[in-house]
Design a binder for these strands. Structure first.
Length: 758
DNA sequence: ATAGGGTTAGAA
DNA sequence: TTCTAACCCTAT
């Protein structure tokens, strides 16, 4: 509303009075309001307004000084309108009425003038109607063309009778609403006032809350629905909602820590906790989520991998910092370090997850560096949670059937992978089905191995591996650091993980094409079967009952173990939970809302040959294989028959970050990771594991198989040996079946829309 | 639908 | 003048 604005005095706040304010009032005729504003301006010479004097002379018809004050405060400060005010009530005594100074004659803009003009006409129009119906409101509305005549003058006597108007038909300046009443401002002002950018309207907390609630209720992306179902004023557009959400959504915020949300960390942490609760039910999450050194304790987090898939919401990067649960499926403890992380702290004694809010330069950057600290397990946890969405009960069942019936897919066991891990590091910009395959097989399954080898081989090997791996490890050479217990750690920066962001994509292809050459020197004692490298991923032979050496938890891992055990105990239940339940439920959506966007992250490329996996995977960050592998001296033989027991944290790493881009792989990789993990000591439900395995199997091999069979992806040429190994074979039938199964699930809505679209 | 970048308005 | 938030536009 153009006539608005008790406006700014020097150093005072300024507020625009919009038509919405008037609409909200419902109690007062707009003319009354305008008159009141004018009167307030006239009486606002001192610090304190003498409301009684104002009322005495008021033309508004308002007889209660208190009411008058209340109206003003509503208009100026959005104070509540108190319904129960008697005529004799005294105004409040405080002197806060003029925190906003009055500008009786604010300078008008073209837009304002046109709006005001429209408003005036609307008022006149209504006035005419009311006149015809006996409700005469005598509004003398000038065109507001001059500085001194902006305020509607309302003859006092009429207003005295009519200042209370019930069901005020709100005159609007919004062209949409106005169009049926009076010519739109567009017509009134052909000079482009209507073209002018809308005045920025700050988002109130209420709006943000509404938005969050809307997202929870209707899901991210349904901005139209949210817009209409939630009480957004008509000045908001779906686009604005989307943009706002992009800014405000938990985990997606680009806000620097210095601003409003000072403690993003705690927010994310709590969000994570909630998400985790949703995933695994009430449990001593706190122990698992502890920050600080304890958090970095080596931990067989793989044990709970299969237990968490029911988290429907995407676990966004925010989960990672909170879930710093290291993993040590192998003998090398690896910790992903953010470049922001100060010092080269021994990962095992890592500082509390430090959220990086500092770099807020670009959204891109944010996407690439959602959080500053990844620990393998946190990553895994995130990926698990994300990947979990792949598996509804039915999906799992279908996939299980498919996988079991034909033994269609066999993920190469750790032993077979040996040095190909390099390929998994080199996904950078690589795209195409081959990438999927590669990622899944090499990074998910083998990645850890590769890293392990690197670490175990010591600095020289690390350096070499770094080279072999391309640029992924460049920023932070995989220097072996020995922990007090002898565990070795590999520090990997985010740049390592996301070479694409590090702008070193060239190396990708080359490496991908020559995976074998990558890390011959990387030592992988347990699995160093060169032939294995050439084995088909789907080849049953690859299913080597390798014995994994998993470090025994040392005492300080107790909490982690506790966590694992708990999760393990929850395994079956979680795996059979019906994902559908959570689809729109509060809790699930809450997780979504709190933890972050789930729509984007999930892209199930494999489902359909039409979907070009390249898009999702091609842009995907390279798989930071091996990040997770860790190990301790004591070893426990672990048979990782099922689905090849990928040490999949690797892919999980990516799941943490721009999930949107690579989730297809990550989720897939992830699941197997979980399955493999259950160390003997953890009583894990075989069923749940199998199911998960099935899914993993499907995803892993299914993607490439599918894409290769049906889509000559543009990057198909880049197919690396591993991927080619995944050529559809008789066995792949099962894979396809699994794909179909998932597809159907997706169609049923069990998978996020984004996934279904794929 | 969304990301990313540019533009604009308002506040400090 | 600078910074920030909101808006707008365009490409994907």
């Amino acid at each position: 509303m153009a006539a608005a604005a008790p406006a700014a005095g020097k150093g005072k706040r300024k507020r625009h009075l919009s038509e919405d304010d008037v609409c909200l009032l419902q109690r007062y005729n707009p003319g009354t309001i305008l008159t009141a504003l004018q009167e307030v301006a006239q009486h606002a010479e001192g610090r304190i307004i003498d409301w009684r004097a104002v009322v005495a002379k008021s033309a508004t018809g308002i007889t209660s000084a208190r009411e008058y004050q209340m109206l003003w405060r509503y208009l100026a400060y959005h104070h509540d309108l108190n319904e129960s005010i008697e005529a004799g009530d005294l105004p409040l005594g405080d002197d806060s009425d003029l925190e906003l100074e009055l500008e009786p004659n604010p300078s008008e803009t073209k837009e304002a003038l046109s709006e005001a003009s429209a408003l005036a006409k609307a008022l006149i129009s209504r006035s005419s109607r009311e006149q015809a119906s006996g409700h005469r409101i005598n509004l003398d509305v000038p065109a507001l063309n001059t500085q001194n005549e902006k305020i509607v003058r309302v003859p006092s006597k009429q207003l005295a009778q009519s200042h209370r108007v019930t069901n005020v038909t709100c005159p609007v300046s919004n062209p949409k609403q106005l169009s049926h009443i009076v010519p739109s401002p567009t017509h009134l002002d052909p000079n482009g006032a209507s073209k002018k950018r809308k005045k920025a309207k700050a988002w109130s907390k209420e709006e943000d809350a509404d938005l969050a609630a809307g997202v929870q209720k209707y899901g991210e992306g349904n901005w139209e629905v949210i817009l209409h179902k939630c009480n957004f004023d008509n000045t908001r557009t779906p686009d604005q909602l989307s943009q706002r959400w992009a800014l405000k959504r938990p985990g997606g915020s680009t806000k620097p820590a210095s601003t409003k949300h000072a403690s993003v960390g705690s927010e994310e942490r709590s969000a994570t906790i909630k998400a985790l609760h949703l995933a695994v039910g009430p449990m001593p999450v706190s122990s698992a989520l502890r920050s600080g050194r304890e958090q970095s304790i080596q931990h067989k987090s793989t044990a709970f991998a299969p237990k968490m898939p029911q988290v429907r919401s995407a676990v966004t990067p925010s989960l990672a910092p909170a879930l710093a649960l290291p993993v040590q499926p192998l003998r090398v403890a690896a910790e992903v370090q953010s470049p922001l992380r100060h010092g080269q702290q021994a990962p095992g004694q890592g500082a509390p997850p430090k959220l990086s809010n500092a770099s807020n330069n670009t959204r891109k950057k944010q996407a690439a560096l959602p959080n500053s600290t990844f620990s393998p397990s946190s990553i895994q946890a995130a990926a698990i949670a994300a990947g979990g969405r792949l598996a509804t009960a039915s999906t799992a069942a279908n996939l299980l059937k498919a996988a079991q019936s034909k033994n269609a897919v066999h993920i190469r066991s750790l032993g077979a992978t040996s040095l190909k891990s390099s390929a998994s590091f080199d996904h950078g910009t690589q795209s195409g089905g081959s990438q999927h395959l590669e990622s899944l097989n090499a990074s998910a399954v083998n990645g850890v191995s590769g890293v392990s080898a690197v670490n175990q081989s010591g600095p020289p090997a690390g350096a070499e591996t770094k080279k072999a791996l391309g640029t992924t490890l460049a920023p932070v050479p995989c220097d072996s650091e020995e922990n007090e217990d002898g565990s070795e750690f590999c520090a990997i920066t985010l740049d390592d993980l996301f070479p694409e962001d590090a702008k070193q994509p060239e190396t990708v292809d080359t490496k991908a094409k020559q995976p074998e050459t990558t890390g011959p020197k990387a030592k992988q004692p347990e699995n160093a079967d060169p032939k294995a490298m050439h084995q088909e991923t789907m080849d049953p032979k690859s299913k080597q009952p390798d014995t994994l050496k998993v470090g025994i938890l040392d005492p300080k891992d107790k909490d982690m173990l506790e966590f694992d055990q708990y999760v393990a105990s929850q395994g079956a239940h979680l795996n059979t939970d019906d994902l559908n339940k959570s689809k729109c439920t509060n809790s699930a959506s809450q997780a979504q809302g709190l933890v972050g966007s789930q729509k984007n992250p999930l892209k199930l490329t494999p489902v359909d040959g039409k979907a070009n996996p390249v898009t999702a995977a091609g842009r995907g960050k390279p798989v930071a294989a091996g990040v997770a592998s860790t190990g301790k001296k004591a070893t426990i033989p672990i048979s990782h028959l099922a689905a090849g027991t990928p040490r999949g944290i690797v892919d999980t790493v990516n799941a943490n970050a721009p999930i949107r881009r690579t989730l297809t792989r990550r989720a897939a990789a992830l699941v197997p990771a979980g399955c493999q993990a259950p160390p003997p000591k953890h009583a894990i439900d075989a069923k749940g594991c199998q199911m998960t395995n099935s899914i993993a199997t499907f995803v892993s091999s299914g993607v490439p198989a599918s894409s290769q069979a049906s889509t000559p992806a543009k990057d198909a040429n880049k197919a690396s040996p591993p991927s080619s190994s995944c050529q559809p074979k008789p066995d792949s039938v099962a894979v396809n079946g699994a794909i179909r199964a998932v597809k159907s699930v997706a169609k049923k809505g069990n998978l996020p829309a984004a996934a279904a679209r794929q």
